[in-house]
């Protein structure tokens, strides 16, 4: 195994359904991937496909049902929280809601440090101000409160907080969705620059395909908790195998290829209920290419040309 890689194998997260001991919502089902250092894995899919559950489960905010997460060959199960949080940190979608309004900027950034290590407040302040400079904020602003910053600046605060423990992996859950395009560009540039400087790995979750295409080295398309397609981002974007990936690319108005533009419409716009997922391939209820066998046979994740695809066709 490559050093300093994040390895996730057969990760599952089932939520029990109220009033039944046998029914589960399978929010994550058999998700596996490898994230080498200094790379970005983009995760795309519609709401409810398990993107955010994946982020939470990786961070340990939700307990996993099954599977293994390991970093540098050390399993997360045997890691103390302290080591875990020094390995992996998270940046959230809504920059205002994820910052404590009663704390000053430097306190927000330094909090993980004060909790996880024995540093004095002065040292923490100094470290926080260094990081503020690194993410493009003026250190003089360290005594301001979150509401005094603009949206883009707040997201920079969130990034600084995630960086203070020198993690190796950052989970970015829709980090730019709440921002205007010009500010979005600033944050994306900052993230790329930080990755280059610090050798970070990113798990970049977004519903915006053009952003993911710009950021990601690898891409994973999820559908109802399962991996639909996973592989090199350029290859997936230029030559998607799975009908769902094709649909997403068509709807995202970003592909120039005629094959994608003329790809048939979805049969139904509605995502099936995860409480009662379709038999066979979960996508067959909407897939314009579905055949009879798709209704009954669950496609295995198959690898071809360094790409995993779960589709019978």
């Amino acid at each position: 195994m490559t050093a300093n890689s994040l390895l996730v194998q057969n990760l599952k997260k089932f939520y029990p359904v109220k009033g039944s001991s046998e029914k589960f919502v399978k929010a994550l089902n058999d998700v596996s991937f490898t994230l080498p250092p200094n790379t970005t894995l983009g995760i795309v899919g519609e709401s409810g496909c398990g993107k955010s559950t994946l982020a939470k489960t990786l961070m340990g905010l939700e307990d996993k049902t099954h599977g293994s997460i390991s970093f540098n060959d050390n399993s997360f199960d045997n890691m103390s929280n302290k080591v875990k949080y020094e390995t992996m940190q998270m940046v959230f979608q809504d920059p205002l809601d994820s910052l404590n309004p009663r704390k000053k900027a430097w306190e927000i950034i330094a909090d993980p440090l004060l909790i996880n290590s024995k540093v004095s407040k002065t040292e923490a302040l100094k470290k926080a101000q260094e990081l503020m400079a690194k993410v493009g904020l003026r250190p003089e602003q360290s005594h301001k409160y979150p509401h005094m910053f603009s949206g883009g600046q707040r997201q920079r605060l969130g990034i600084a907080r995630a960086l203070i423990l020198n993690p190796k992996v950052l989970i970015l859950d829709e980090p730019v969705s709440a921002l205007d395009v010009s500010v979005q560009a600033q944050i994306l540039n900052l993230l790329k620059e930080l990755q280059k400087d610090l050798g970070l790995s990113y798990i970049f979750i977004s519903h915006d395909l053009s952003v993911v295409n710009y950021m990601a080295d690898d891409i994973m398309v999820m559908y109802l908790g399962r991996v639909a397609e996973y592989g090199n981002a350029d290859k997936v974007f230029n030559n998607p195998y799975h009908p769902y990936t094709k649909t997403l690319l068509k709807s995202g108005h970003i592909s120039q290829s005629e094959e994608i533009k003329s790809f048939p419409k979805l049969i139904s716009s509605e995502l099936p209920s995860p409480l009662n997922p379709p038999t066979g391939c979960a996508f067959h209820t909407r897939c314009p290419l579905a055949k009879d066998e798709c209704h009954s046979i669950l496609p295995e994740v198959e690898s071809k040309n360094e790409r995993s695809v779960s589709c019978l066709l």
């Binding site: 519609e46 519903h207 395909l209 649909t247 709807s251 995202g252 108005h253 419409k265 979805l266 716009s269």
Partner: peptide
């Protein structure tokens, strides 16, 4: 809305 729904 999601992109697929947006398209529709």
């Amino acid at each position: 809305l999601d992109v697929t729904v947006q398209q529709q």
